[in-house]
């Protein structure tokens, strides 16, 4: 499984790519494999303010439904609208075309509360 080193990870299997004050978030390669066959995704409206760990959406696969939790405090400024017609991109390219939301983060330093790729890899390996 692929866990890029330049991303930060939550224990709930989301990733965050921070560029300045804007973070892009999605679910990890591990998460998409666990879900498989993703068929619907739904996000809160852009403009919604979320806290770290708060729900920003729901992803549905054929056999499972999961809530999505924000990796940081901030405002959802954009959602990936193309996933409405191409939910399979989350399975095919979870860190690229399968990105989910952009968050204007309140405090970029909050990224240090998340897991590194190495730590996340350990978390997944230990089930």
């Amino acid at each position: 499984m692929d866990f890029p080193d330049d991303l930060a990870y939550t224990r709930d299997h989301e990733w965050l790519r921070l560029e300045g004050e804007t973070g892009t978030a999605g679910i990890t390669d591990y998460a998409q494999r666990e879900l498989t066959d993703i068929v619907f995704v739904e996000f809160v409206e852009p403009g919604t303010v979320v806290r770290q760990g708060e729900r920003f959406g729901t992803v549905e696969a054929i056999k499972a439904v999961s809530d999505l939790f924000s990796p940081a405090d901030g405002e959802i400024v954009e959602v990936n609208a193309e996933l409405a017609t191409h939910p399979e991109w989350i399975n095919q390219d979870p860190y690229g075309k399968g990105w989910m939301v952009k968050i204007r983060v309140n405090d970029p330093a909050q990224v240090h509360t998340l897991l590194s790729a190495a730590d996340y890899r350990t978390l997944v390996a230990n089930g």
Binding site: D12, A64, S66, D67
Partner: peptide
């Protein structure tokens, strides 16, 4: 991500 309904 927390699964609410595992393979049912």
């Amino acid at each position: 991500m927390v699964k609410r309904a595992p393979f049912e």
